[in-house]
Design a protein around this nucleic acid. Structure first.
Lengths: 183, 183
DNA sequence: CCCCACTACTCAATTTCTTGAGTAATCATA
DNA sequence: TATGATTACTCAAGAAATTGAGTAGTGGGG
């Protein structure tokens, strides 16, 4: 039941279809939470069965129809309960860190390549996220936005994601530099 | 097979018992990889069955005997193969970020409390990690250490963990400040 | 007009991880 | 001398996530 609350949070204050959620939770796009589309559709079905979400068909012209989902009152309550419950500590699980840990068994140039690949990915993601955050701010300064906007949750979460990416960029640059200096 | 390589990496250049690994992979202790002891013992058994690890009994006085594990040549090769293989992008999964995303459904004071709790945890972990890194450096400056040490993998990985924690500290402080200003 | 990309989903098998409960011995402390 | 913490593990059930393969319609480019 880990995805559950992420889905409820995503549907707070708006309706989205499974497919739109797929994109929001996509590996490449999400600095919020990740899940595959299969997992999403399965969890959406459960949430609907549990009455935390309602889905309704939207007829479309020129493309397949879709079902959009919205929070029910129960869903909103569940989300509030979740927010108040004790938070599990995070557990880091990143193959690239394992690879760095195993540096001694690796060919330095191979490891440097891995770090550079991640660096490029993270830079691209960071640019994307930055643009998303700018869109949310909608011309306002960050201060102004955070003081005035209705729903700042996505901005807070997105900022955390960006910090993560900035770190990754810094670390990859640093670590690959260290490795280059040694060889 | 996600834990696999983290275990192999942990056993690179040293022998450890299941119990010692438990502590290394513990939620509270690890900024490298997390796993429960049950998962570890199960995976150790598989790795031994697959010939990537060898375990041998160590008789102890004044405490239960233990089995320590060491990499085999196959294990070392497997680790090298893993390091060279394409790395999966990371997927962020942190309940606290979901809670921040759902800010609009939450009682601000509750969310602030959650952020402050995490802040305290991360500060404690950061102090611990900092001391671990200092121990690895063993009196040397970072530059000196990184240029001269045999096996810098754990230091590279630990540094990434510390960056993660620093970020978490910064973000929790920032986000709780934002929320306080709004209420 | 064919092929590819995109929208919008589904099914099934398997692996991985979590949760919860135990066992059993030793050591320190109150 | 009982009590709890630490060392060192095991078993089993179930939830969550991954992997891989499919279906089916629409729009646009060559």
């Amino acid at each position: 039941m880990a995805l559950r609350h992420a889905l409820l949070a995503a549907l707070l204050d708006r309706e989205l279809s499974g497919y739109q959620l797929t994109k929001l939770f996509d590996l490449a796009a999400s600095s919020f939470w990740h899940a595959s589309s299969q997992q999403l559709y399965a969890e959406l079905a459960k949430l609907e069965a549990d009455g935390l979400l309602t889905g309704h068909e939207v007829v479309q012209h020129g493309r397949p129809n879709k079902r959009v989902f919205a929070l029910t009152d129960n869903g909103r309550d569940e989300l509030a309960r979740f927010t108040a419950a004790p938070t599990k500590p995070i557990s880091i699980r990143d193959d690239l860190i394992v690879k760095a840990y195993a540096e001694h068994a690796a060919d330095p140039s191979v490891l440097i390549k891995q770090l550079e690949d991640r660096l490029a990915q993270s830079r691209a993601k960071d640019e994307f996220l930055q643009s998303q955050l700018a869109r949310l701010r909608d011309g306002k300064s960050e201060e102004e936005y955070l003081a005035s906007a209705e729903n700042i949750g996505p901005y807070l979460a997105g900022t955390r994601g960006r910090m993560y990416l900035r770190d990754e960029i810094d670390w990859c640059e640093w670590a690959s530099g260290v490795l280059r200096n040694r060889s």
